[in-house]
Design a binder for these strands. Structure first.
Lengths: 340, 340
DNA sequence: TTGAAAGCGCTAACAC
DNA sequence: GTGTTAGCGCTTTCAA
């Protein structure tokens, strides 16, 4: 900046004025300064500016998600980015991989980088401690999962209702033995979907069979193992509610392997590009992670702008998409019934 | 920091020493300072430190990809993150959406934020101008696509060879009318795959039919339209090489719609979680975007650390995954031949 | 082992 | 319209 000032023959402050587009600078000066800045490939140092301004605003936010490579997480990122980029805010996205100490380390790193706020998919544990780490001065919004004991905005899918809708759909087709595949029970998303599933069964007068409820599905492999086990039951399920992407993929893989994919009904959560190409085409509760991300970002920017109303909970509705796999009527699915 | 110093009863410099873990501070002082820092929830300001240090290192890099929500791009991000997080480097990821002016704006924004380097999937045009924008002082690495007229490291898949392998595979099954679906011809990735496709045909003595080569597939919809058109030809293709994810999805959708998915062979690029669940299971050239991202990040950090050897080109091999869709023998695929 | 002074690149407040 | 001075939070150099 000093160099630009020297080259343009003005003071350093005038360069600052031009760079920030302040009024009351003569057109001639503006031109001279801009020419000098271009020639020197000058880019203002945003960090130094923020430091000097005293506002400590960096126009940067941090997004902590399960994994940047996971389609659901990255759809959230996409939503956040859409909103942030309109405001010229840059986004640090990072993966917690579900690990609390990684999460803490990331928060520390971003705190040092003076982000303006956080959007967080909380890991299963330790919610209070990360909230305390962030402190009260920095706004944060939680997405996808509800942190316990933390006062902050939360944006999730309407998990309980959506799970109820999916389960009712299967019940309507006559199913009575419906399996549930879900994430760890420490995660609100999983338990809420479990509640919705149980709501529907109870309302239909169907007894809840704990043997059909499998929690702790974290990978496709987990889902495959669970599905194998379910099919091995004396009285296997005739339908499956796979309450997350990976669970559905694993379940279908196993059903296909046993030639049962057209005999056991299945409804997934999380729509994906290829859901309609699967054999049979997959019925799903389609949640809208991009909308979740957008809403979370909007909340966060409202907070950053000074909104100090009480924390709110937002639910983005998931919709049932009927494609075939969820409309298969109950059939005997005991292993060995087909192909000997 | 001043407050911490006051509370601990030491000078500001001593706090700095403790925070940076410098030696030659008495254990007692360290404890007092740390207690004060904890009590005050003190986090050092990384930007101010970088400013004072004069090295201008921010331990931050920028990643410009097509779209953060796109599975291929986010897999690259995942690879970059894996390497960066080990070095405590934060990543700004942002979407260009293939738009040159967006790309330029992002580069300017990150230049102002004083990132240590760039990893870029270049938009179709304007390579030289973005390189000039970044200037010679900041290292940058290009991924997935080769920028023209830019001297920098490049990491891509072995596009030409992989396309040759895929096409040869189809030729081996007896196909002679093989369609190519590819991205815009301004993108090196698309043209390289096109060259590989043509290499294989030429080597097999099969004439290249321009009517079977479709470039400019940017969306699933584009792919669907192209596939419809191809099926409407007097002599339609008996096989398809869909050289990108979206092209494969659109093509399969149309083939399924016409009941031709078991009559027309198809090989995709980019493996996805559900490739094996599709009807029929999709054969693909599986590229490894996570590895591409990792390699790019490693290159970038080497450059940041001062490596000034001549720019290199790296190719990460893609492997053929045989699942069924690519092993269908040639059959009449004229519309209306099936089901009247 | 600790502290004082100077300055990184920039902007606020105030002159002129 | 433009320049001067002080200082943001920190680290460097040098002195104690």
């Amino acid at each position: 900046m000093r160099d630009v000032a020297a080259l343009a023959g003005v003071s350093i402050k005038t360069v600052s004025r031009v760079v920030n587009g302040e009024p009351r600078v003569s057109a001639d000066t503006v031109n001279r300064v801009q020419a000098a800045a271009d020639q020197l490939q000058f880019f203002p140092d945003a960090a130094a500016a923020s430091l000097a301004r005293g506002s400590r605003e960096t126009r940067t936010v941090a997004l902590l998600i399960a994994s940047v490579g996971n389609p659901f997480s990255s759809a959230i990122f996409q939503g956040v980015e859409e909103v942030a980029s309109k405001r010229q805010v840059a986004v640090f996205a990072a993966s917690t991989e579900g690990d609390t100490s990684t999460e803490e380390g990331l928060i520390r790193a971003f705190l040092s980088r003076r982000v303006d706020g956080f959007i967080i998919t909380p890991t299963p544990e330790n919610h209070a401690s990360i909230a305390q780490l962030i402190g009260a001065n920095l706004p944060s919004v939680y997405v996808d999962r509800e942190p316990i004991g933390v006062k902050a905005d939360v944006v999730t899918a309407n998990n309980r209702v959506a799970a109820r809708v999916a389960t009712k759909h299967l019940l309507r087709y006559g199913h009575r033995r419906i399996a549930l595949l879900a994430d760890e029970q420490q995660i609100s998303t999983a338990t809420d979907r479990g509640f919705g599933y149980e709501d529907a069964l109870t309302q239909a007068g169907v007894a809840i069979d704990p043997a059909l409820e499998v929690y702790g599905i974290a990978t496709v492999k987990d889902a495959e193992q669970a599905m194998e086990r379910l099919l091995g039951l004396a009285s296997p399920p005739t339908a499956v509610f796979a309450s997350r992407n990976m669970a559905a993929i694993g379940a279908i893989r196993v059903l296909q392997r046993h030639g049962l994919s057209h005999r056991v009904a299945l409804i997934g959560f999380d729509d994906i590009d290829t859901s309609d190409l699967v054999d049979p085409p997959m019925s799903v509760m389609r949640q809208d992670p991009v909308a979740i991300g957008k809403l979370a970002a909007e909340c966060l920017f409202a907070r950053i702008s000074g909104d100090d109303s009480p924390p709110k909970r937002y639910e983005v509705p998931a919709v049932l998409v009927v494609r075939g796999s969820g409309e298969i009527p109950p059939q005997d699915a005991r292993l060995g019934q087909i192909n000997g």
